[in-house]
Amino acid sequence: MATLLLGFFALVTLLPFIWMVCGSFKESEDFLEALFLPQGSGLFGIGWDRLTLDNYREIFTNERADIFNAGMNSVLLASLTSLLATLAAAMGGYALAKFKFRLRKPITALVLLTLLIPPPLLLAPTYQLLYWLHLLDTYAGLILPAAAPAFGVFLFRQAILNAISNDIIDAARIDGCGEARIFFSIILPLVRPMIGAFLMITFLAMWNNFITPQVILQTPENFPLAVAIVRLQEAFNYQEYGISTAATLFSIAPIACLFLLLQREYLSGLTSGAVKG
């Protein structure tokens, strides 16, 4: 009974993915005719010869919907942002965890305050600020505001407090090790799981971010996938199901690969804020 229930939920979860994979290889006419793969005389009674790669060819070459170019934009945006954000968060978290200095309390309070504000509130004033700074329609306008997440500073502060004793740091100082070297060769290696988790968290957040690029970017060649895929829908008048499914799969495949690589770090990083283990 319980096995059946688990199986049922797994099926429901996977069904839309399977359906889309089948759909992405079908001609438009077959989309109407068959739920999954079209029937035919081939192996398992499936019309393998009716399957096509045209949908994928279309999203890589069509001028109106340059999904491949958008994919490259997304890779660039998400990698740059996650690298910068992780470095800034690790540095900030380290300072708040292991140094005693006058502004430590106020800065920690600022980090906590940042976490209280719902991001949509800052949308309008940030847009105005980017307009004044002439950063509208630039990648800098997208990356900079996302490059120092308070959430990350908070996570790294906790990780460093838990994982690293002050004695190691002081011992390194007495041996004449500089502050930068302590950070890069002692602290960072000791919080490697958190680095993996946070790179993934920020990469995912930027990859899936829609509202900010939608508001800030205007040049279609610069659109990341999240925005481009919505424009694709418009360009084909909401009718080309094969192309739509192919584009969706192309948009989520890189994330799936990255997740398979980093899943352990990511999941434990995600739950570490909630579950003490």
């Binding site: 380290y94 300072a95 140094f99 200095f101 502004l103 502050e179």
Partner: peptide
Amino acid sequence: APYLFLSPF
């Protein structure tokens, strides 16, 4: 040192 580490943030 702590201020330098915190400066980007």
